[in-house]
Design a protein around this nucleic acid. Sequence first.
RNA 1: GGAAGCGUGGCAGAGUGGUCGAAUGCGGCGCACUUGAAAUGCGCUAGAUCCGAAAGGGUCUCGGGGGUUCGAAUCCCUCCGCUUCCGCCA
Length: 435
Amino acid sequence: MIDIELLRKNPELFRASVKKRNLNLAIIDNFLALDKEWREQLVKSENMRAEQKKLGAERKIEEAKKLKEELVALQEALKITEEKRHQAALAIPNLLSDDVPEGKDDTENKVVRTWGKIPKFDFKPLDHIELGQKLNIIDKERAAKVSGARFAYIKGGLARLQLALMQLVFDSLTDEKLVAKLAKKAGVSPKPFTPIFPPVMIKPEPYTLMARLSPETKEERYYMPADDLYLIGSAEHTLGSMYMDEMIAEEELPIRYLGYSTSFRREAGAAGKDTAGILRMHQFDKLEMESFTKPEDSLKEQEFFVSIQEYLTQQLEIPYHIVHNCAGDTGTPDARQLDLEMWMPAQEKYRETHSADLMTDYQSRRLATKIRLTDGTSVYAHMNDATAFAIGRTLIAIMENYQTKQGTIKVPKALQKYAGIKEILPFLKGGDRLR
RNA sequence: GGAAGCGUGGCAGAGUGGUCGAAUGCGGCGCACUUGAAAUGCGCUAGAUCCGAAAGGGUCUCGGGGGUUCGAAUCCCUCCGCUUCCGCCA
């Protein structure tokens, strides 16, 4: 939710932002009209209510009774306007940060920097699908039989890699020295992350308040009607809503979590897109960073998160670039979004593996997550969330970048001690037949 | 899943139909005292929202929603959550 007071005072600011996102300006004007109507009705209704209360206090019971009848009708009309106005307010996306590049879709995102040397193979590199089949570490056929399309069994050496990735991230982000070093460069607090496993189911209310259950995103969610619960699409959804209706003391900031969870997405709008392999799944695991800061610290916090993403990807020695998403490709609740894209040799493309989202107070305003400042006043918290590793996609990048001529996969140095292996060889033992 | 109890401001905790947005304590902020600090004393201190240039005033909020009533923190219904006991399970 945007700051309505600011919108009334400075509608041009919001018009510019909405226009930059390539959206219809009517969403602003529609809101302003409803807001005006609502305020007029509100004043009338409140004045009448005050009068009715006064009559009651004076024990003029008959008069109060009569006035109440009028009041009820007025309040019903008000309620309708209020709901319309509320929906109109929700439709307005976050104000874009000034430095967000112009552009209407992902083709106009701006590459900020590039790291690493693109690997040259003296053989034709395979894609992760072929590699997965040959090594018998990805089984989508049986997953389709049991669970349907866009599911997979991740096995053997690849399962070990997943655990290794988790351990690398958990070790790194709880390491006081390492975090302090990266934080110093970014000019933010050196406080390390608290590791956390959040719930993977969420109630409709916090989900809506997180701006992740809008009419447009709803069809992306798995819903369990018997319990009125949704499966989360990201750890962000239950991490960001943790402090709903809470007041956080300034001394506790920044609050930084490193979450691990499975994520669930229906991929309803992606029919036929990326169906091969494990790039786009209904279920995938992800390590996610989430933080709560004071408003003035949030932009630096986002850059800090990006520097962590880069540090981790560099540990894997996988080439990547950082992209500043253009206005048209920036999420509704985001003020500013940067993506990290890893090099995928088989596609000869960088593909999105990470995202870093600065939400400013867009979510906290709705969640009522506030900070009690040391001077006694309070402000809405600023929130950041960012991927540490999306496991599936990172596995693809490792498989394709580290493949050998023999069709095996070397394990990145940084993961070897966690994985317990240096190379993924065909996994055939224990009666696990290839099809 | 069954039974009982509970849910009040930043925190603790009073309050069982009007004078209660709410005693008191802690915490926070300000001032005084002090070389400084502590201690002490005095004052201020819930949120959202609307009207207003401001001063100020109104409305709503005592877990959420609904109801009874002229009037609800207080009575009723319902949902959510917490605690304890029983059952079941990893």
